[in-house]
Computed example of a mutant assay.
Amino acid sequence: MSSILLTLPEIYNAYKNWVRKNPQSLGDWETSAKWISYFIAGRINNSHVVSELVYCLSNLLVMFNDIIIKKNYCQMHSTNSAEKLKLWLTIIEYSEVFCELSAKKLWGVTGKWIIIVCIQVFKCITRLMLIYRYKETVIQHPPIPVLDRKNIKSATNLSTIGEMAQNQFDTSSFILKSSGRVVRKIEASPPLALRTWKPVPKSQNVSCKNNELIEDVLSGRKLIAETIYVTKPMIHLASQACFGTKTWKPWLIALTMDLASLHLYRSCRAIPLNSLTPQQRLQLSKRQLLLVLYIIRSPFYEKQSRDKINALLEALSKHVPLAGLICKPLAQYLPFWQSTYFYMWST
C-alpha cells in the first residue's frame, strides 16, 4: 500500500507532463467521455444519475486539464480570491444537476428541493461577491470558460507583445493630465535627421484609460442589470414557494427579470464609447438566445408548446428520411429532460 501511495505523485506528474505535451489529442478523449454519458442514458438502471455523473466528471476533467495547460503556457503560479470563487462556482455549475438527481434518488422530492435551495444560495452569494467586491461586470457561464487550446500559444504571444509595447510606451513618453496629449520624453527623442515630427501614437491600453469616465457613468446601470440577473434564480424559487410550481406567476417574474437585465445592458451599449468587452457582449448574446428556452419551461411547456413540439417531431420522423432515428428518441426523453434541465435557475 505504501509503495502505491509513493507512486501517486509520480503518476500525477507524469499525467501533467502528458497533458502539457498533448493538448490537442487530449480533446478526443474528453469528447469520448461526454459521448459515453449520452450513450448510457436509458440503457441501464439509474441511467440518468450515472449518465449525469459521467457528464459531470468529463466537464471537471476538461477544467482540470485546462488549468494544467494554462499554467504551462501562462506561467500561473498563484490565484487570487476571485479566481478561487470562480473555480468553486464552476465546479458547482458542472455538478449541480447530478447533485439534484442524487438527492431525489436518496431522499425524495423534499431532499431534492433542499439541495436546490442550498446550491442556489451558494451560487447567488458567490456571484454577488464577484460583482460587488471583485468588480466583475458580466459573469460568464461557466465562470471559468473552456480554454481555446488551438490559439493559446498565439494568445500568450500577443499578451507578451502587448506588455512589451506598453512598457516601451511608458519609458519613451508620458500623458498630460489636463489635455490627455501624449508627449515624447527628451531622452527618448530620435536623432534630428530621423525625426518625423508626427505626434506620438497612443498605446491601446492608454486609450482605454480615457473611457474611465464613461465606465463610471455606466457602472450603475450595469451593476443593476447584473444584480437582477444573479438574483433571478432565488426570486424565482421564492415565487414558486409562494404561488406554486404550476402557475404562470413564477414564469412571468423570471422572464421579466431577464428582459429587464438585457434592456439595461442594451441601454449601456447604445452609448458611442462602448463600455463592454467583446467577451461580455458574447455572453449577453448567449443570454438573449437562452430566452428561447422559456418555451420549454413550465408551465408554458405543458400548456402551450408540448403538443406542438411532439407533432413537429412526429411529422419529421414520418416525412424526412432517417429523421426518425433522432426524433423518436428525442420525443421519448423530452419530458424527462424538460423536468430535469430546463429550470429557471439553471442559466
Rank of each mutant, 00 (worst) to 15 (best):
S2M: 08
S3V: 02
I4V: 10
L5H: 02
L8M: 05
K21S: 10
L26A: 03
E30P: 03
S37L: 04
Y38N: 09
F39T: 11
I44N: 06
H48R: 13
V49K: 06
E52A: 02
I67R: 15
I69S: 15
N80L: 12
L87P: 08
L89T: 12
E93I: 10
S95D: 06
E100P: 04
K104D: 13
K104Q: 09
K105L: 07
K105N: 04
G111W: 00
I114F: 04
I114Y: 12
I116S: 11
I125V: 02
L128P: 05
Y134R: 05
V138C: 09
Q140A: 15
Q140S: 15
P145R: 07
N151G: 05
K153Y: 09
L158Q: 12
T160M: 11
E163V: 10
Q166W: 04
Q168L: 14
F174V: 14
S178W: 10
S179V: 11
P190G: 13
L192I: 04
W197P: 03
W197I: 03
S203P: 06
L218Y: 11
E226K: 08
E226M: 00
M234K: 06
L237M: 05
Q240V: 08
T245M: 10
K246C: 00
W248N: 03
T256S: 14
M257A: 14
A260V: 03
L262V: 02
C268M: 04
P272V: 01
N274Y: 05
L276E: 06
S285I: 10
L293S: 13
I295W: 03
Y301S: 02
S305A: 01
K308A: 14
L313H: 15
V320P: 02
L322Q: 09
G324F: 03
L330M: 06
L334A: 00
W337C: 04
F342K: 02
W345A: 01
